[in-house]
């Protein structure tokens, strides 16, 4: 009886020793990678340019304040556009993301070999590429304007909503679906009664959350010509009108705070 705990103890010790080794190795790799990359960055940085950085910062601060308060009257229209880009983009993104999520979820996909990897690829591609890059491409293709912004936001939202939705679908309680199946329900009825009620809270939560993020992202799409308040930002930056830039930042900050509040209120109400 006495030998068993001892062997267990030594085995445990050996395990922790190996574990400790791995931890140290991980730290070593991380730190040396940090040093190497830091040096690469130093090579690419012109330090003499940076010597007067504090002065630059003070100078920039001086030029940015006070904000040009009266400029706000020119910003309501662009702000309305920004809101529309975010909302319409989110809606279109959701409409596409939901079927993609059902195709990607292990328990609802029609084919695990063929359809599921394709749906996952759509999700990954959409997630990897920021909406600003989508906008860059779309402006080149469609020309500048709100439409490019809406589609850019939609394309980026597919991956986000799709990923969280398909994970929610895979985590549903299968007993409920089984019970509906046992009544002789058809495929669509099983979806309607067995699966949809279970994922509906996730769906609304994720959608509102993404809308909130999209408000933030759509404020800068104008930098590449995709409409909204970013167009004004771009113009102000190009003409070095720093008080206007500050005013635009203030408006953006306010919008973001409001949208975040709305989104958290809605998410709390769903629960």
């Amino acid at each position: 009886m006495m030998t068993q705990p001892t062997t267990a103890l030594t085995a445990w010790k050996r395990n922790t020793r190996r574990h400790e080794w791995l931890v140290w190795l991980a730290w070593l790799v991380t730190i040396s990678a940090f040093i190497v990359t830091w040096q690469i960055m130093n090579q690419n940085t012109l330090w003499f340019f940076l010597a007067d950085a504090p002065e630059q910062i003070r100078d920039l601060g001086g030029r940015m304040f006070p904000p040009s308060w009266s400029y706000i009257h020119y910003l309501w229209g662009p702000l309305w556009d920004t809101l529309n880009i975010a909302t319409l983009g989110t809606l279109i993104g959701i409409v596409i993301a939901v079927p993609v999520a059902f195709l990607a979820a292990r328990n609802t996909t029609p084919s695990r070999r063929l359809v599921r990897p394709l749906a996952l690829l759509v999700i990954v591609a959409s997630r990897s590429i920021n909406s600003l890059i989508w906008a860059l491409l779309l402006v080149a293709i469609l020309g500048p304007g709100l439409l490019a912004g809406v589609i850019a936001i939609a394309l980026r939202s597919i991956g986000f909503v799709g990923k969280l939705m398909y994970e929610a679908i895979e985590e549903i309680d299968t007993a409920q679906v089984e019970a509906i199946e046992a009544t002789g329900a058809s495929l669509m009825q099983r979806l309607d009664y067995g699966i949809v009620p279970q994922i509906l809270p996730t769906f609304f939560g994720v959608s509102v959350f993404r809308w909130d993020i999209n408000i933030r992202e759509s404020t800068i799409l104008g930098l590449v010509g995709a409409g909204g308040i970013g167009l004004q930002l771009q113009a102000a930056l190009n003409t070095l009108a720093w008080p206007r830039v500050t005013m635009i930042f203030v408006v953006i900050l306010g919008t973001v705070v409001v949208s975040e509040w709305v989104s958290s209120q809605v998410r709390n109400a769903i629960r």
């Binding site: 019970a179 509906i180 009544t183 002789g184 329900a185 669509m188 309607d192 067995g194 009620p197 279970q198």
Partner: peptide, 26 residues
């Protein structure tokens, strides 16, 4: 194995799913 987020009545009526067309159940 009830559909937790549906009403009691919807759960009972779901026993009729095999008899009614999809649009009626929807």
């Amino acid at each position: 194995a009830l559909v937790e987020r549906l009403t009691v009545m919807e759960n009972v009526l779901s026993g009729r799913l095999g008899y009614v067309p999809f649009w009626r159940s929807l």
